[in-house]
Design a protein around this nucleic acid. Structure first.
Lengths: 140, 140
DNA sequence: AGCACATATGATACCCAGTATCAATAGACC
DNA sequence: GGTCTATTGATACTGGGTATCATATGTGCT
């Protein structure tokens, strides 16, 4: 998956630098969603001297390529989650932070209906689902 | 509508103070979404000596009562919009910032389907729709 | 109407996410 | 290897939001 990211960066025509490789590896071993601060801490713990700005810059790049997406948790904080570059939505476990993607399951109909009722022309939407993942459900 | 907010605050058992009344009036005359900074500017322009913290505190109160909701614009910034305290979703005009509410138009089916596919138990969801309002559509 | 007291206020200082700047570094292509 | 541009990291900054705390003010009671 770090491979996937590096490939995508390569395809995007940017340089495959040391910091980017290291960060991709760190992202890979993350589970669930993470913040920029998390990555920074990871990097710090391993004494990779990676700058704050570099982290944000990579996250931005990855997000342009659709390999990472920024979501808004219910508590108002931001987090990033690694994902596939196709259109989809996220399911986030409120307990452990695990995420999965679900692809379009009928949202089109909803946006259509909303457009019809409101007269708006709908150009984008964002759907985020929060709950408990299978593990956390059975764990109690 | 300022009335509505004040009533709700009263019902919530908090004090109906001067600053709260003034801010409610300012929110009332806002169109579309606004930021805390917008309110602060409004208040400053009218020389009401209202503190930064007070604005945030009121927004939090109103949001607990469901009279205001914090949304995340596509550019990642936060905004607040006044709304009814029932469950619903927001349509935001990307051009002028106007908003409307749409109530549930089939989202349940979507969340059900997502739950079925993923094994998650879904507890909350957030749906935000962005586009062009009727006015901005016809204005071009 | 006046009092007492808790709640709310605003000034200030602070925290955290993210961005701008810029001289120093290091990929990529020759 | 050398060159040249993209990238880096240190630093400083911005903007949203929160903590603190002495002062001010609604509210309930009489």
């Amino acid at each position: 998956m770090a491979e996937e990211m590096l490939d995508a960066l390569d395809r995007a025509g940017v340089r495959l630098t040391g910091p980017r490789r290291k960060l991709a590896a760190l992202i890979e071993r993350r589970e669930g969603h993470f913040t920029a601060a998390d990555l920074l801490k990871d990097a710090g713990r391993r004494r990779m001297g990676i700058g704050r700005a570099t982290v944000f810059r990579l996250l931005e790049l990855l997000s342009e390529q659709g390999l990472v997406e920024r979501i808004d948790l219910p508590d108002g904080t931001h987090a990033y989650i690694p994902c596939e570059p196709t259109h989809h939505h996220h399911l986030v476990c409120l307990n452990c932070g695990a995420t999965t993607d679900v692809d379009d399951c009928g949202i089109e109909a909803v946006t259509h209906e909303a457009a019809r009722r409101s007269g708006f022309k709908i150009e984008q939407h964002r759907l985020e689902l929060f709950g408990r993942c299978p593990d956390c459900r059975s764990a109690n």
